[in-house]
């Protein structure tokens, strides 16, 4: 505890390759070889990988959001509620401006589209700011603050829709979720841009460094003059924005938005964050690790689905994987 902040900052600089990253890359390769050898004729087809590039980005954004809040020792359990709320708000906006169906809605112009994106992202920023203020100002623990706000976000979505899904989005909106940019899936392009930005933010700016310092030792960070409140608040605003973006991708891909979509994404996002080398107690985590974990788990899940595993057993495997990765991390730390 006597190390000066400067020394701590030096210690945080990447020295060699992170063992968690190596472990993750190895896991991805093992999963790939396993699936390919168990089921070559069905697994080694282009459409399997093509569908991953459309499905993975929304989960990836949620996982990065989870990692961001874990860096300061927190967690964001409201991401799914906020993602669905953002999609629903955008859908309601489209239905209000261009009608609930028909050619007006299908061919809604760029202005309407930008309005929808603006509303969804604003919802994410506001929702994230509420979480951040609850945590930094009202001093509510992240778990309770985001469990509560997640319920409220889902509740608002439920009150707005009355339960059923909002179906029917503009054609340009579904292009975000189903289109291609230079031959690459549009969601993947969005994911790469956002992941790159967040990665740069974490490794090359004071914000990223102080976020990790806060997670390593909040008291030391405060005494060394870092504005812990503002940094943590910003991390939750970012997390909310990422969740809303995931909501945009989800509603664009499925052409629908519902208050209880993607509940199982919550565990998967936590799992991917932890598996990607994020320390849920704070201080450690990287976009690279999360991306590798995302890739490995998407391979695993499509492989299991191709082998006709029941969805329930896939859930079991997710849970068991989370526990296994915890055990591996603990063992690795003990050996050190």
């Amino acid at each position: 505890m006597t190390a000066t902040p400067a020394r701590r900052m030096l210690a945080l600089r990447p020295r060699r390759v992170d063992p968690a990253l190596v472990q993750m890359a190895a896991l991805a390769v093992v999963v790939f070889i396993l699936m390919a050898s168990l089921n070559p004729q069905r697994f080694l087809r282009p459409y399997v990988f093509d569908s991953i590039t459309y499905m993975a980005p929304e989960l990836g954004l949620l996982s990065i959001a989870m990692m961001l809040t874990m860096l300061s020792g927190g967690i964001d359990l409201s991401v799914i509620g906020l993602a669905n709320l953002a999609g629903i708000l955008a859908g309601l906006f489209f239905h209000a401006t261009a009608g609930a169906s028909g050619p007006d809605l299908r061919h809604a112009g760029a202005a309407v589209l930008c309005g929808g994106i603006g509303i969804a992202v604003t919802a994410g920023i506001v929702g994230g700011a509420i979480n951040g203020l609850l945590i930094t100002r009202a001093r509510v623990t992240p778990i309770l603050a985001t469990i509560g706000s997640g319920q409220i976000f889902t509740g608002i979505a439920l009150v707005l829709t009355g339960g059923p899904a909002i179906v029917g989005f503009p054609g340009a909106w579904s292009a975000i979720g189903n289109g291609r940019v230079l031959g690459v899936a549009a969601p993947l392009v969005i994911f790469i841009v956002i992941a790159g930005t967040i990665g740069g933010l974490l490794t090359r700016t004071p914000f990223g460094l102080s976020l990790k310092l806060i997670g390593t030792n909040t008291r030391a960070a405060t005494f060394s003059g870092l504005r812990t409140g503002r940094t943590v608040l910003l991390s939750y605003i970012l997390s909310g924005t990422l969740a809303a973006t995931a909501g945009i991708l989800l509603s664009a891909r499925t052409n629908a938005a519902k208050s209880d979509y993607g509940i199982s994404y919550l565990l998967q996002a936590v799992l991917i964050a932890v598996l990607g080398g994020t320390n849920p107690a704070g201080g450690r985590g990287s976009v690279w690790g999360v991306t590798l974990a995302l890739f490995a788990l998407m391979l695993l899940s499509s492989g299991l689905q191709l082998m006709r595993f029941s969805n329930f057993l896939v859930d079991f495997i997710w849970g068991a994987f989370l526990l296994l990765s915890i055990a591996l991390n603990a063992l690795r730390q003990r050996r050190r």
């Binding site: 565990l267 029941s310 896939v314 079991f316 997710w318 849970g319 068991a320």
Partner: peptide
Amino acid sequence: IVTLGTGTAVRGLLLG
């Protein structure tokens, strides 16, 4: 994190 994992695993194993 632990109870999130055990809860999901137990429910998945029960149903599956």
